[in-house]
Design a protein around this nucleic acid. Structure first.
Lengths: 172, 172
DNA sequence: ACACAACCTGACCAACCGGTCAACAATTTT
DNA sequence: AAAATTGTTGACCGGTTGGTCAGGTTGTGT
């Protein structure tokens, strides 16, 4: 809390005036990240098929990994520790969200727009792959000669992910 | 350290006899995880092509996620924090390892055994997807009605991942 | 039996951390 | 302008944490 206060440029006691406990401050942070996370699915909806829908979703989530790497890490840490402060969100909002998208993907499968894949595992793969570029960004950077991915490399990453997954689900 | 000593059934001072500092104990843990991680690639080598090699690698890494979920989380946490204690491993062992597998994948591409995909991004996708089942196991469990994946569900997960990726790289 | 090393342990300590509080300043309401 | 509410701050506190240390015990080589 002292460090956060220092970086925010105010005394620690004043920080505690706005956020009585560290946990409340942390909860706000996680909630904000969750919002960004959910909004990435806007591009998912109203898509005519998997190529547009999932393609746009990958783009959106890759962009989040790029722009909010720390947010992604906080989210990952929270879930890895068993979601002690946002378990309720997982059981309500996330569960509903997931069910909705899984149903949509299943519809695409039924309509023959893609191969018959398990929608849940496809979603997990989308989350895993896109968030990996944020959560394991340091490892990727190290394997990239110690340099962050360039504009061109980010595009190549996006294209690779889209290419493999869209072909993998038989959508292209 | 007190908690670790309690769970190990010995006084804290005795724990400090074997591991002078907490960081040294932690380093040993991370190193051990890294070993397991690397050995998963044994199945990768000596494979005639991507279907066998990458298929076996996915199986091996999914099995690690299942059997050592906490190890996977520790590794993820370490990398997410910028690899403060195993940066040297990333720059030596991991870098060499990655280069070797990327070359192998590139060879398969050149031999026409799979579609031309960027080997690096394929590796990242393999890591991300398989480790996701450990690191985000709590989230998956919550979305599975609060129950851990059953034997059958783990098999379905493995099959889904292999199906999508192997088809995604044009190997099947 | 003796010496020496390796191993074990309870008690203790300095540093750190989240949080509190009384006093004070600024702003808004009446 | 007075009163009340909101915002700001330095100093302080109890609990926890990683780590130490003197003294004791066990094992080993001679």
């Amino acid at each position: 809390m002292q460090l956060i206060a220092d970086m925010a440029g105010l005394p620690k006691a004043n920080l505690h005036y706005y956020f009585p406990t560290k946990e409340e401050l942390y909860r706000k942070v996680v909630q904000q990240i969750f919002e960004i996370w959910l909004h990435a699915a806007d591009s998912f909806d109203n898509a005519p098929g998997p190529v547009e829908g999932i393609g746009a979703y990958i783009d959106a989530k890759m962009e989040i990994s790029r722009r909010h790497p720390d947010g992604s890490k906080v989210w990952a840490s929270e879930v890895m520790h068993g979601a002690p402060v946002i378990q309720d969100y997982l059981e309500t909002t996330l569960r509903d969200w997931t069910k909705g998208r899984a149903d949509l993907i299943q519809r695409w499968v039924d309509e023959g727009k893609m191969a018959p894949v398990d929608p849940r595992h496809l979603l997990y793969m989308l989350w895993a792959t896109t968030q990996h570029y944020a959560d394991f960004g340091h490892q990727i950077e190290t394997l990239n000669g110690g340099k962050p991915l360039s504009e061109r490399q980010w595009k190549a990453a996006k294209d690779s992910v889209k290419q493999i997954i869209l072909r993998g689900i038989g959508a292209v």
